[in-house]
């Protein structure tokens, strides 16, 4: 085995340090080393987006990044969005608008959409569809996902107005 490397990174607001083989993919690090199995592997060829996480706030396919490249970075996985008592607006949107069927794609889709909403808090339907380019859903036909994202954007705008953002946009503890 080649020399392993020490990585220190923040995952869902918790600092983690580990020794990893350089060839270990970030998605394997999250799923196997940290046991955060919410991040899925759909294709493993950079196409499906099921493995999408936020790296320093930006949506990235974690099957196309090495864990060592994430040294020093702040990662958010679906586990960091919210929990059943405190759903993130995007999770609320998927719930209200039936944005999932089998749910396999859902964690990656939600992370990609959180990335979109951070940059474009009030996206048009077209912008949502464009941003969905990097994720594949085999079930829904996308319409309900689009509805869910627009619902989330509207909810977040309301929260912004009432000044309640931090309360209702939790970033969970991770595990």
């Amino acid at each position: 085995m080649n020399k392993s490397c020490k990585v220190t990174l923040t995952v869902n607001e918790v600092e983690r340090t580990a020794e990893v083989e350089p060839r270990m993919l970030l998605v394997h690090f999250l799923r196997e080393t940290l046991n955060l199995t919410g991040t899925h592997i759909g294709c493993d060829t950079s196409q499906c987006g099921a493995c999408t996480v936020l790296v320093n706030g930006e949506a990235v396919k974690s099957c196309t990044m090495l864990a060592v490249q994430a040294d020093g970075a702040s990662i958010t996985t679906v586990e960091g969005l919210g929990d059943v008592e405190h759903l993130h607006p995007i999770q609320q949107g998927f719930w209200e608008k039936h944005g999932l069927q089998c749910g396999f794609c859902t964690p990656g889709v939600m992370m990609a959409m959180v990335s979109l909403l951070q940059e474009h808090p009030a996206p048009t339907e077209e912008e949502v569809r464009e941003a969905l380019e990097g994720v594949i859903c085999r079930c829904t036909g996308y319409q309900f996902i689009v509805d869910a994202v627009l619902h989330a954007a509207a909810e977040m705008a309301k929260l912004q107005e009432s000044g309640n953002v931090s309360d209702t946009m939790p970033v969970g503890e991770g595990r």
Partner: peptide, 9 residues
């Protein structure tokens, strides 16, 4: 180019 995630990297 590619998609949102690809363009980020």
């Amino acid at each position: 180019i590619g998609d949102l995630q690809v363009r980020h990297r």
